[in-house]
Amino acid sequence: MRRLRALPLAFSPALAGCSGVQAVLDPHGDAAALIAHLSWLLFAGGAAIFLLVMGLLALAILAPVRIRAALGSRRFVLIGGIIFPSVTLAALLAHTMGVSRALVLPREERPLRVEVIARQYWWEVRYPHAGEGAVTANEIHLPVGREVELQLSSADVIHSLWIPGLHGKMDMIPGRVNLQRFTPTRTGVLRGQCAEFCGLQHSIMAFWTVVQEPAEFEAWLARQREPIPPPTDAQAARGMRVFGEAGCGACHAVRGTEWRGQLGPDLSRVGSRMSLAAGALENHRGTLAGWIAGAQDIKPGNSMPAYGRVLEGEDLLALAAWLEGLR
């Protein structure tokens, strides 16, 4: 423990207090809705059985002799321990298999394919149908009403993608590609998080999923592919120069420039994203500068070096200003 301070975990203020962004029982898609429905069934059935067993236990202790004699028979054990659970569980198994089948039946011939590649400790997101350039990080945009197939892989250790509002978890395992299909049915902003322990910063490996109207989505996707415009003011120009001089391009790519690094997130539209460093920080000029300067204090053990001792204050601010403008 170095020093006591609150972690600067990011939430857009607009979302603060909205308890449903990562909730299982607030579904925004068909798969999550099926599972939520099944969950309520399980909770109701479980509660009823729990009360029944506790009631029988109370009777066994307190009831008059006549009732207790009935409970103290071998037949009671056979009915309660074998017949009742067998019937209940057989019904539940049939229902479970029905729900499982409904969850895996493909609905569309050609769903929207999105590749998500997990790394310690962030998410790379690609839209292969839209070409090479359609890359972003820590944010998945999806059109409402269209079936999605997530193609999930990992570049290092096992991670697990979990967007409770859309579906359950699916592990991302080195050497394999796992698929997850669902159709978002409501627009909204949902939070997801890594669910398989993946190392030091497993806790800060979140992302936002934005379910939007198809037209909005297409516009967003088109914008991702465009090269960035040249800087509009002197500070931004200085920031862009600093980016090159500090060697940021070795790890980060920016479309329309010579920088094509693959180790860190693509920064072409970093200014438009909802969070920084996989949910570690909100995204604005101040946090951008703070992250560049102190990445190892904010999220120790992540792959981004801290540039606080390398960059002068003015350079740092200019860099942050330029990045913020990449929208």
């Binding site: 067993v53 029988l56 236990l57 009777l59 066994a60 202790i61 009831a63 009732i67 207790r68 004699a69 009935a70 409970l71 103290g72 028979s73 071998r74 009671f76 054990v77 309660g80 321990g81 074998i82 009742f84 659970p85 067998s86 569980l89 539940l92 198994l93």
Partner: peptide
């Protein structure tokens, strides 16, 4: 699901035993 049946048997056997005696 199947493994919960043996546990159920035991739970009901304990409840039944309590009922057939005096706790």
């Amino acid at each position: 699901f199947a493994v919960s049946i043996p546990s159920g048997i035991q739970v009901f056997a304990w409840i039944g035993t309590i009922a057939s005696g005096r706790l």
